[in-house]
Amino acid sequence: MFPENVFQYRDRAPRPVKPSDSGDDPVEEGPQRPKVERPDSGDILKRMRKVDPNQARRYRQRTGQ
C-alpha cells in the first residue's frame, strides 16, 4: 500500500471555524477569506521564462470523458 513513512497519521486538523481578522467578512463562522494582495510577479516571471515554449505543442492527450 501507499508508503506510510512518507507522512504521519495525525489527529484530524481542526476546521477553521473562528473568524479571522480579515475585517470585511461579517460572517462569524466558517473560514474567512484572508486578504491576498496582488501577487508579486517577479519570481513567477523568472519561473515562466524557464518553460519550454513548445511544451504545449508536444502535449498531446487522448480524449477523456
Binding site: 507522512f7 497519521y9 484530524r12 473560514p31 491576498v36
Partner: peptide, 13 residues
Amino acid sequence: QVQRLIEDAAIVQ
C-alpha cells in the same frame, strides 16, 4: 500569494 482554505497537515491526513 493565493487564497488557501485548508491546511497542508489536513491534506496529508
